[in-house]
């Protein structure tokens, strides 16, 4: 999923990529609650019949399910954002654990666009001072190509 702010020629341009998440937070809660309800009803039923061992197993399983769904929920908010503001380029990588920003000088940064002969663009990165910052993990091949072309027109150079 991609959000774009500003046009290619404007002084302020930002593009944000997010992972594709088809399950909302409310949906996640519903999924967990529905599974937990069924599992716990069954477990309590057996508990009342004397088979209490079902309860800890059900609890452990629901714990694993909860952890998994929570992990998914937390990472649903991850994003990558590239902002061009006059001569400054800012690349932000946001995850649950950290929020990292790389600042580049627009005159020095060069664009690396790694495309296959069949047109599939595998990788988009910015290079400056011998280091590379990748961008576009959440972009499609076509979007990487378009962003790469835009960056080429806006930044210092272009490598392919």
């Amino acid at each position: 999923m991609v959000d774009v702010v500003g046009s290619a020629s404007s002084l302020h341009y930002a593009i944000t990529g997010r992972p594709n998440c088809s399950l909302s937070a409310a949906g996640t809660c519903c999924v967990f609650l529905s599974i937990a309800t069924i599992t716990l009803i069954v477990a309590f039923g057996f508990f009342l019949a004397g088979a209490w061992v079902v309860l800890p197993f059900a609890g452990a399983e629901l714990g694993a399910l909860f952890w998994s769904l929570r992990y998914v929920c937390l990472h649903a908010g991850d994003y990558e954002r590239l902002t061009i503001d006059h001569d400054k380029v800012l690349v932000e990588h946001h995850t649950t654990k950290q929020d990292v920003r790389f600042e580049l000088n627009g005159y020095w940064a060069r664009v690396i666009l790694d495309c296959q002969p069949n047109g599939y663009c595998r990788r988009l990165a910015l290079r400056s001072h011998g280091k590379e910052i990748e961008f576009g993990r959440f972009l499609s091949s076509e979007e990487r190509l378009n962003v790469g072309r835009l960056l080429k027109s806006r930044l210092g150079g272009y490598l392919s």
Partner: peptide, 21 residues
């Protein structure tokens, strides 16, 4: 809290062979 890292301090974490095929 966001951390801004100058480009000079970034380690190159992305290997050249990190592609789809």
């Amino acid at each position: 809290m966001a951390t801004t890292i100058p480009i000079q301090d970034v380690h190159n974490e992305h290997h050249a062979d990190n592609h789809p095929d």
